[in-house]
Computed example of a mutant assay.
Amino acid sequence: MRTLNDIYQCIQCKAVVAHGNRHCRGCGVRFTAADIDHMKDNIQSVVGALPWNLRDVYRCVHCQEHVAIKDAYCRGCGDEICDNERQLMKLRMDEIAKENTPALIGLLTFVLLVILALVAM
């Protein structure tokens, strides 16, 4: 999991990016080693970076890097994310959720039974 120490701002568009990203998620620029050195310690808003990890639940259709649905470009391969690709990413997430629903129901049932057992003691 990334920490706030790993989060920077793109030198071109000021989008929030993370150490290790090869491309900016906002403008698609490819980062050089000099760019990454320049980005260190340039984060302006810690509060703005807090929800950053929570949005990255989708995967790029080209390279499978985690991306947010609002990203304009993949931070892994630099591909521009078009509307059709966004729809495909959402569809894949829906399929994954459907596959995991029985396991989630089982886990929630188990947790509920444990809580009821503890309360009954």
Results as ranks from 00 to 15, higher is better:
L91C: 03
T3I: 05
L88Y: 03
V46W: 01
F31Y: 07
H62L: 08
T101D: 07
I69Q: 02
L91Q: 12
Q44C: 04
L107S: 01
R55K: 14
D94A: 08
C27H: 07
I11K: 09
A34G: 00
Q87E: 14
A15P: 00
E99I: 04
D71L: 05
C27R: 04
K98F: 03
D6W: 08
Q9N: 14
N42I: 00
N100C: 08
L4I: 15
T3N: 13
A117D: 10
L104W: 02
M93V: 13
K90V: 14
G20Q: 12
A103C: 00
A117V: 04
G76I: 08
G76K: 09
D56L: 13
C10P: 01
V16A: 10
I81F: 02
G78F: 10
C77S: 11
V57G: 15
N84R: 14
S45F: 06
C63L: 07
E95A: 09
G106F: 00
E99N: 07
D56T: 15
C77D: 07
R59G: 06
P51R: 09
D41C: 01
Q44T: 13
L112W: 05
C82I: 10
E99L: 11
V47K: 07
M121Q: 15
L113M: 01
V47E: 15
N100V: 02
K98I: 07
I96D: 14
K90N: 07
G20V: 15
I43P: 00
A120D: 11
D37F: 01
V47F: 11
D71W: 13
H62M: 06
C60W: 11
A117P: 01
M93L: 14
L104H: 05
Q64A: 11
C77H: 06
L4P: 00
K14V: 05
D37S: 10
A120I: 12
I7R: 01
V46F: 04
C74E: 08
F31G: 02
V29N: 05
G28F: 08
K90T: 08
F31C: 04
R22K: 13
R55W: 06
R86L: 09
D71A: 10
I43W: 00
Q12W: 04
K70V: 08
N5Y: 04
I115H: 05
Y58Q: 09
C63W: 09
I96V: 13
G20E: 09
A103R: 02
H66E: 12
M39N: 03
R86M: 04
F31V: 01
L116F: 11
K98L: 13
A103W: 06
L112A: 02
P51L: 11
R92S: 07
A33S: 08
D56E: 15
I105Q: 10
D35N: 06
N21R: 08
P102T: 10
R75Q: 14
C27G: 02
N21C: 14
E95H: 08
